[in-house]
């Protein structure tokens, strides 16, 4: 049994995250739900770091646990809702059917996840010449990748062209860059259009949220008609 420290930490954090997610759904006070969801997201950040997606791990904690969930918590503190204990405890036939159907969905997903083989039953191209490097937990950084590469624009341009034109060029080029550099090489060459579109989407979201927040309301009187 070759359990490494990384494996033990995976099981530990996995257990904590599943328990926290269950508590998110079943705890009656919404603020505790929000705080537990922040815990789940931080643990997912740890998993991303374990999977050598360093930038995405940090972005997960910054965006989700540090901003989105803070927003949820602040909104719920302002709402000051009474505890709604009756919400979760109603046992009607509909609730049982819902739980059973979710159980079926869970079974299908878990079964599919457990049965998938190394080559994804032919759908994923894995470099079978060498097993993927085992994930290293928080005690060591990505020691195999040098931290700074050439930034000569001419050299990078050749590689960028090759990545955009040859989708499988990834594997050889990508072994010598850090994760952030790999992400940015692909993001700003092949997916640049979506990236720009995303900024427009964020602008739309900002305008929408501000417009919605300025709606009239208030605790003093109810206005008829706008």
């Amino acid at each position: 049994m070759e359990l490494t420290a990384a494996d033990i930490l995976f099981y530990l954090f996995g257990f904590v995250s599943v328990v926290s997610a269950l508590m998110v759904v079943f705890v009656s006070n919404p603020i505790y739900s929000a705080l537990l969801l922040a815990v789940v997201m931080s643990i997912l950040g740890i998993f991303f770091f374990n999977l050598e997606a360093h930038f995405i791990a940090a972005a997960q904690v910054v965006v989700y646990a540090g901003a989105v969930m803070v927003l949820f918590v602040m909104v719920m503190m302002l709402f000051d809702l009474k505890r709604e204990k009756e919400e979760v405890a109603r046992f009607s036939i509909l609730t049982v059917l819902k739980i059973i159907s979710v159980g079926v969905v869970c079974g299908v997903l878990v079964g599919a996840g457990a049965m998938i083989t190394g080559d994804g039953m032919g759908f994923i191209k894995v470099s079978t010449t060498e097993a993927p490097p085992p994930p290293s937990m928080l005690l060591k950084s990505d020691i195999n990748a040098p931290t700074k590469q050439t930034t000569n624009p001419e050299e990078l341009k050749d590689e960028v062209v090759e990545i955009t034109q040859n989708p499988q060029a990834g594997v050889e080029i990508f072994t010598k860059y850090t994760d952030t550099q790999k992400l940015s090489l692909k993001l700003f060459s092949k997916y640049i259009f979506i990236f720009e579109l995303l900024s427009v989407l964020l602008l739309v979201a900002i305008v929408g949220a501000v417009a919605l927040a300025r709606s009239k309301g208030g605790t003093h009187h109810v206005t008829r008609g706008s």
Partner: peptide
């Protein structure tokens, strides 16, 4: 028991169904 792709997918499936 050694953690591989399957474990992450199972965890993801469980969280999704929750």
């Amino acid at each position: 028991l050694h953690v591989g792709l399957n474990h992450y997918l199972v965890l993801s499936g469980v969280l999704f169904s929750i």
